[in-house]
Design a protein around this nucleic acid. Structure first.
Lengths: 147, 147
DNA sequence: TAATATTGCATTGCGTACAATAAGATTGTA
DNA sequence: TACAATCTTATTGTACGCAATGCAATATTA
């Protein structure tokens, strides 16, 4: 990686493309497991958050997932239609819509308990490298979001 | 990061989410620069490939960008409408559509020569870390795509 | 060479992803 | 208590991203 301007415009020299491609390819590894339960990746990570902490508002979910209401509103409506969550407008502050897991939604967690381990194996990466990689990504994410 | 199944289902413990979030956030850093020239990120990386090697077929572009024809066909039509590329069906094999930069498309590269350097600074990451991170991502990508 | 298989692109449909905007509710303050 | 500012969600429009399908062109093979 030298400093030549045109070399740096090569796709293979771009960190951003490596991130973009890796993200898509790893998500594609999840798909067969998620499709088996009728879920998309975005729906899955939304459930991950709710399994960790139930009863969040749309904006709280958005903050954790880095998604805005334009993405979340239709997605949450689909999860509601699948009877995995309920959307309830807050009585005290009617601007807020709170999201609750249904019993069905809560139970669904059981089906995914082994998935992280399975995905880790599929990735063919070493544990130490995965930890290292995630740490670097989180630091990069922190840098960006502080701007 | 211990081995508890429920802990591994926490969003913060998921390498995939770190990739997904990082990818989106870095792409969002590109947007102001790309919008100034009427480009999206996907259109930009398509041009990156063509600046490096002109006259590729749709499938060759797809192999490099890891995108399929359902994504590329409408995107290439937009770039053609902007007069940055031309799409020409191959005379020898009429199944093939070859993509050529126009003079306007070739000249546009000049506007982006400094962008990689600028984005690197914006990311607040150290050079050594960026190199390390990209290497790990490319290795991970290689692992996945060998399956 | 006729039948079959494969290849390469285009189309459709669904689901994000996000900017811009709208609309309703709440809060702060004069 | 008006009322402006802010907050929160919803809607709209544009652009991917990909699976599934269609179809025309080419390659293969019996």
């Amino acid at each position: 990686m030298n400093g030549n301007s045109k070399d740096m415009l090569k796709l293979d020299n771009q960190l951003c493309f490596a991130l973009y491609a890796c993200s898509k390819e790893i998500i594609s590894l999840y798909k067969p497991y998620l499709n088996a339960h009728g879920l998309t990746y975005t729906q899955y990570i939304t459930l991950l958050v709710l399994w960790e902490q139930d009863s969040l508002s749309v904006s709280e979910l958005g903050n954790k997932l880095l998604l805005d209401s334009g993405t979340l509103t239709p997605l949450l409506k689909k999860l509601e239609k699948s009877q995995l969550i309920e959307r309830v407008r807050d009585k005290d502050d009617e601007r807020i819509v709170k999201v609750y897991l249904t019993e069905k939604g809560r139970m669904l967690q059981e089906s995914f308990l082994e998935l992280p381990q399975k995905m880790f194996c599929n990735s063919g990466i070493k544990l130490e490298e995965a930890i290292n990689l995630k740490a670097m990504l989180n630091q990069l994410l922190g840098n960006i979001r502080k701007l």
